[in-house]
Design a protein around this nucleic acid. Structure first.
Lengths: 190, 190
DNA sequence: GAATCAAGTTGAACTTGTTCAACTCTTTTC
DNA sequence: GAAAAGAGTTGAACAAGTTCAACTTGATTC
């Protein structure tokens, strides 16, 4: 059965036929995750690529000083995985934790390989998806380098109001790369 | 004629046959660039993907305050382009400037499309390349958030000694996201 | 080879952001 | 529904990084 959110996400230009869309979706398994549960824990191998149907996840590392570092937030219609761990079967450096009760579609490495083989066009679809992702990472770097914490906070809340509203201030601060105390002071100013 | 550096870069696992490797290379045009020349200037549309055979390039933006922001350095065996501009035919936000006399192989958008069509396996090769790139961007973000300027400088010079040695301190500082004055003080400390 | 321009250095004053501790206010848990 | 844990706030002292200006040292250029 076709999941329209998933298909719309990956197949923007309608390159896949109806039956291909159906096959595409058949490789994915639904999975429910409760609030605060981990979809992936640091140290374990990431055995899936996931797509968020409902809810919200935080992807973060914990550094040697014990500080959390939020890499990104994956809400509805976002992908989530540890690419490195998934590709190379290495222990993950990332944690993926549900911010609220959530539903994802996941695909195993074996099924991902089968999907690529069976519908070669999907290589192009994911290639384009990854290209867009790189653009976003580059822009985030430039913002981190050229904007102050206050400007970054303002950009974040304006650009992603739906995501921002789901985060605690502590989570937001670790996404912005500042302490939660300082975020509190920033908010007071404005 | 096969360019072995290019083939080794993209075709790690030897997925392409000898003749495919030859065809792959045939889509690329060599181009020489003198020191300080621009391969791409902010505001112009990026009409190529490039691969560095010799020399070194700096990819950077200039923000509204006039500050340069070095996104990455592309030395021998690296790819360089403005993905966003190349994909969407939009004016580029990036400058690509040669740090020294350099040689690149470039491929036009039309030829890139023809390459993907003629050798579909290349979709997979570039898909994997972009995935690896995302991993690197995520790690750089974590470093920027969790390390001090001094630690970042130390990581940079240790991880990329060949690149670091080609940069002026001003360029290095704009890569690290600090002022050149502060980099000077960091260097004095250690 | 003098003149000029860009790169690097240094110091002082300043701003941004951190740390730590104390406190309040919610939320969760039993 | 009391107790405990976590989230947010505030202040004071501190550290990290910036700004600006003055200076020195190398590179270029004519």
């Amino acid at each position: 059965m076709i999941n329209h959110l998933l298909i719309a996400n990956i197949d923007e230009k309608g390159l896949l036929s109806k039956s291909e869309q159906e096959e595409f979706c058949s490789y994915f398994q639904p999975k429910s995750i409760s609030k605060k549960e981990f979809l992936l824990e640091q140290g374990k191998v990431c055995k899936f690529e996931g797509f968020v149907l409902e809810g919200c996840f935080r992807i973060f590392t914990i550094d040697t000083k014990g500080n959390e570092n939020t890499i990104y937030i994956a809400a509805r219609n976002w992908w989530l995985m540890d690419i490195d761990s998934f590709m190379n079967h290495e222990p993950s450096a990332l944690n993926i934790k549900a911010l609220e009760d959530s539903k994802v579609l996941i695909i195993s490495e074996k099924d991902k390989a089968a999907l690529y083989k069976s519908i070669p066009k999907t290589e192009k679809l994911f290639r384009i998806m990854f290209q867009k992702s790189i653009v976003a990472w580059q822009r985030r770097l430039v913002r981190n380098h050229s904007l102050t914490a206050k400007e970054r906070y303002s950009h974040f809340t304006k650009s992603y109001p739906d995501i921002a509203s789901k985060l605690t201030d502590r989570q937001t601060s670790s996404y912005l790369g500042i302490t939660h105390e300082f975020l509190s002071k920033i908010k007071k100013q404005s």
